[in-house]
């Protein structure tokens, strides 16, 4: 027993001592090296600007390194995510993609060639809570008024299979909402359709609607996750346990926004160096200022903490998975 404790203590001591040493050897490795930062969308847009920001500040915090951003758009972030996963685990390729791919992995969707459980997680930069946004000309002002609607109201989502579609279908079916879903509203199509009055609302990330609501074109009636206190939390209005579980799943999506990860099997010292540089980048006042202007304030998590959050989101009960599969058209 005594020996056992002792060995643990030794290990702990070793670990504590080797941690910084590991990171230091990793940092040295990056002198004169070029790191490719893959962004799974086309240039422009939130993922790209955020990715470029992270790459720029990681470069500053890894002495002698050069970060190059590479855009690999297509198939709803799948092409980029697959490319990051398949890249050589030499610590020279990392990147960012939509957290919504968690849904695709849970149901084993076509085109998924990665396992998020195994990726080398570097960090996540922001939280992007979901909101129910309602057009201002609609009489619906509260959650109760929405669920009391006698005839279904039109809600817009992007294409079938997209994260916004999956979330809307899941919440609609689990909470039995009076919502008629219309798909194919990409980019800001839904906001224009709300202005025209074709569409009553949308379940979307808050950052994409802040401008719209500020301009008086719409209002939030309920929010999932996030620290904003101007809108009631959906979880406080729902009693059904199955509904609560799905809300928690959607919330976990919002919590791990703007992530950075590399392929499985990056040596520990290099991962430590990357996480260290990422952390320093996130703590940089200038990055925080710029991130705020781009979208949302920085709310970072690092390395294993992100892995933990991703694992929790991936680990769903069979009933939840069944609802997800239904949403994604998989029986």
């Amino acid at each position: 027993m005594k020996n056992w404790t002792k060995s643990i203590l030794t290990f702990a001591a070793l670990g504590a001592a080797s941690g910084p040493a590991l990171a230091q050897s990793g940092v040295d490795f990056y002198k004169g090296k070029t790191v490719t930062y893959i962004v799974a969308t086309a240039p422009g847009g939130g993922y790209d600007s955020y990715g470029r920001l992270v790459a720029e500040f990681m470069q500053r915090n890894l002495p002698g390194s050069t970060f190059v951003v590479r855009n690999m758009p297509g198939a709803g972030h799948l092409i980029g995510a697959n490319a990051i996963y398949a890249s050589k685990p030499d610590g020279l390729t990392i990147g960012t993609f939509n957290t919504g791919l968690i849904y695709n992995q849970i149901v084993g969707q076509e085109g998924v060639k990665f396992d998020l459980n195994n990726m080398s997680w570097i960090g996540k930069a922001a939280s992007d809570p979901r909101v129910f946004a309602i057009a201002s000309q609609s009489p619906i002002k509260t959650w109760k008024e929405l669920i009391d609607q006698k005839t279904p109201v039109n809600f817009a989502t992007a294409g079938v299979g997209s994260a916004s579609y999956v979330e809307t279908v899941m919440l609609t079916s689990a909470l039995k909402l009076p919502i008629k879903l219309l798909t194919g509203y990409n980019g800001t199509d839904d906001q224009l359709a709300m202005r025209r009055g074709e569409i009553v609302g949308s379940i979307a990330s808050r950052s994409s609607y802040d401008q719209f609501v500020k301009n008086g074109f719409g209002r939030y009636i309920v929010q999932i996750g996030g620290k904003d206190t101007d809108v009631p939390q959906l979880s406080s209005l729902v009693t059904d346990p199955k509904g609560q579980e799905l809300i928690a799943l959607v919330q976990s999506q919002g919590d791990i926004a703007r992530l950075t990860a590399g392929p499985p099997g990056i040596p520990a010292d290099l991962t430590a160096a990357l996480v260290g540089a990422y952390k320093k980048a996130m703590e940089d006042k200038e990055l925080q200022e710029r991130a705020e202007k781009l979208e949302r304030p920085v709310e970072p998590l690092y390395g294993d903490d992100v892995l933990k959050a991703v694992k929790a989101a991936l680990n769903q009960k069979p009933e939840t998975i069944a609802i997800l599969k239904e949403a994604l058209g998989k029986k």
Binding site: A42, P43, G44, G45, G187, T188, Q191, L192, R195, Q211, F212, N215, F217
Partner: peptide, 12 residues
């Protein structure tokens, strides 16, 4: 005037 960009270029 709407804050709703008409094209991907305008979105950027």
């Amino acid at each position: 005037f709407f804050g709703i960009p008409g094209s991907s270029g305008m979105a950027v």
